[in-house]
Design a protein around this nucleic acid. Structure first.
Length: 635
DNA sequence: CTTAGGG
DNA sequence: CCCTAAG
């Protein structure tokens, strides 16, 4: 009946603990916004262009970091005999989502503004040009569609977002049969200096099987379309640090929206790592501003929850990883029967997933534009700096001098555990250092992993496979119907596996690694893409701030604590604060000799203990009261 | 999205 | 720090 007085007499340095009522979420949320300017407008393609640029630069300046990577070229070579002289097949599947291009957006959902053109393919892939439409044909037969839909749903289920109205298409490069696949170039307005990846897959002879990825920059398409205002660039630069402060990964996506619904908003948000979300947000803002001037209603899209950025990111990454694993898989021919030579390693690479690929095309777009979109996406993602990685048991084998046998890759062993990754040859760099050096859209360095583990990299632990979402699973996964955009490229040896159509939902960004993972391996909770955040010990001043905040707000209101004391510390999520408090309490309760890390002043620890005691008691009282109340109500 | 806890 | 179940 009476407001409980909560005067902290424990002595927080003489301060009365101001009990700040917990504001309604709705209100609190409002506060979260407006943290930074929201008038930024960014052209999606500008972003793309920058990304492409960076990546290109990266590629050019970076020689291979692995033995396989000779600039712009990667090769998988299995020097073992027994590899069938088969043709490699490359399939590209795309999950398309209705989109409205920013340039034509008026409700009609105009065609994507991508323009595709034949590229100057290298001789080896010349025929690609001839194959023209072949290498990007849309499969629309009902049966397949059905499967894909199921798959999409399945995939979408992983992301937890689904939408209706998505159309799917499979692009099946016929070039396969010609043993090579070419990616024609695609030009996007504003996309500058894009590379023209030409992926040639050929199988020389029974002695070796190789996948040759060569890239060429297409001078022809270098001419840029008019770029957006400097305004855009400025904003990108200005906000870049925030966007990519912690994770600068490759981004290559084409996006637009046909749906301005909240669902759409949420979906997008979910699908993309929070760090990119902000960008997306801006992109959207841009689009919306464009559109609003045309009289189209915009929906609120200014939500920003800065503290949750990282957490969110984590979630997305997690989901992405999940999806990721569904795709890249190999199937291995383990036919011992025909294998007389026990030392032959025989297998086929069933599919290559293109993780960072994200394609969105308006339903009303033409098939042609779809093709072009895919091309562009591929171009943006594969623009070259890739190198192949080999995974055994989910662990990356880094020593190129090892023999297959030494690496545990042998016919008698578990070929199922063999996988490949296609990753950009990026330098290892601290995201934090990088961000300072490259204030704008730099998203390459991220995939760098700690240089530690020399041979086996635990990070790439077991290619996780979620049993619930087997690649080949076509069962309708019910419910959701949201589809991000999937883009899967499969490389298969002849004998097309009936269900080589594994459709993979690629969670957009973070295309660092394209991997091929064994099909039968059991899923693990470790995902290749997960990169643990770099450890950043709390400084004494941070501890001080935390203690102060908890003293006044109480332990448990982490969101508020965050807001109060770490609002600008983007790398500290409220969960982090909660965790830190936990450790602080622990630290304070153990002997000084047992403490590690930068010593926290005893007085601070004392305050921790005091506050902890106080708020614990407080909480207990609250609970008691609550119980009493409920019990009374029952009587 | 937030909290709360275990890992 | 990560991962998750609950709310």
């Amino acid at each position: 009946m009476v407001l409980k007085k909560r005067i902290y007499d424990g002595g927080f340095h003489g301060l009365l603990a101001p009990v700040i009522p917990k504001a309604p979420r709705s209100l609190r949320r409002r506060n979260l916004r407006n943290k930074s300017s929201e008038d930024d407008e960014i052209c999606a393609f500008e972003l793309l262009a920058d990304v492409a640029d960076k990546l290109l630069q990266e590629q050019e300046s970076e020689s291979s970091t692995s033995s396989t990577g000779s600039k712009g070229k990667g090769q998988i070579s299995i020097p073992e005999e027994g590899v069938k002289n088969e043709l490699l097949e490359v399939k590209v599947k795309v999950k398309v989502k209705p989109v409205v291009s920013e340039h034509h957006d008026q409700a009609s959902g105009a065609e994507n503004e991508l323009v595709a053109q034949p590229t100057n393919l290298d001789p080896a892939s010349k025929e690609l040009n001839d194959s023209g439409s072949d290498h990007a044909s849309i499969v629309t037969n009902a049966d397949f569609q059905k499967k894909i839909n199921a798959n999409l749903i399945n995939e979408a289920g992983n992301l937890g977002n689904v939408d209706f109205g998505d159309s799917i298409a499979e692009i099946h490069p016929k070039a396969i049969e010609k043993q090579c696949v070419g990616l024609t170039s695609v030009k996007t307005y504003g996309l500058k200096d894009h590379l023209e990846p030409c992926v040639n897959t050929r199988v020389p002879n029974k002695s070796s099987s190789s996948v040759d990825l060569s890239f060429c920059k297409d001078p022809f398409h270098s001419a840029c379309f008019p770029r957006r205002t400097e305004n855009v660039n400025r904003n990108i630069r200005d906000d870049d640090e925030k966007y990519f402060r912690y994770n600068n990964r490759s981004i290559a996506r084409l996006r637009a929206f046909s749906s301005r619904s909240r669902a759409g908003y949420k979906r997008m948000r979910k699908m993309m790592p929070s760090r990119y979300w902000k960008v997306a947000q801006k992109l959207k803002d841009y689009e919306l501003s464009n559109r609003s001037s045309g009289g189209v209603k915009c929906f609120s899209h200014k939500r920003k929850n800065i503290y949750m950025r990282e957490r969110f990111q984590a979630d997305v990454v997690y989901k992405r990883r999940k999806l990721f694993h569904q795709s890249l898989r190999n199937s291995y021919n383990k036919n011992a029967s025909s294998e007389s030579a026990s030392n032959l390693v025989k297998f086929s690479i069933k599919s290559f997933k293109v993780p960072g690929l994200y394609v969105e095309v308006p339903e009303t777009a033409t098939v042609g534009s779809l093709k072009r979109s895919v091309m562009e996406a591929v171009t943006a993602i594969l623009h070259g700096n890739l190198h192949v990685g080999v995974l055994v048991q989910g662990k990356k084998v880094r020593d190129d001098n090892r023999t297959l046998q030494q690496s545990g890759i042998s016919q008698n062993c578990n070929l199922e555990a063999l996988g490949f990754t296609l990753e950009p040859s990026l330098p290892e760099a601290s995201p934090f250092l990088v961000q300072q050096e490259i204030p704008s859209f730099n998203m390459q360095q991220q995939l760098s992993r700690s240089p530690s583990s020399p041979d086996i990299d635990e990070g790439f632990s077991n290619s996780s496979r979620d049993p619930a979402f087997p690649v080949t699973t076509m069962e309708n996964h019910g419910g959701k119907n949201e589809v991000g955009t999937t883009f899967t490229a499969e490389v298969t040896t002849k004998e097309p596996v009936e269900d080589s159509k594994a459709l993979v939902l690629v969670p957009a960004l973070d295309a660092e690694v394209l991997s091929v993972v064994p099909l039968n391996e059991q899923p693990t909770k470790r995902y290749e893409f997960s990169q643990r955040r770099t450890r950043r010990p709390f400084s004494v001043s941070e501890v001080e701030a935390l203690v102060e905040a908890v003293e006044t707000l109480g332990a448990g209101r982490w969101r508020d604590v965050k807001m109060r004391a770490f609002d600008d510390a983007y790398h500290r999520t409220y969960v982090d604060l909660k965790d830190k408090w936990k450790t602080l309490v622990h630290t304070a309760s153990i002997a000084p000799q047992q403490r590690r890390g930068e010593p926290v002043p005893q007085d601070l620890l004392d305050r921790v203990l005091a506050a902890h005691a106080y708020w614990s008691q407080h909480q207990a009282k609250q609970q008691a009261k609550k119980h009493q109340k409920t019990s009374e109500a029952q009587m």
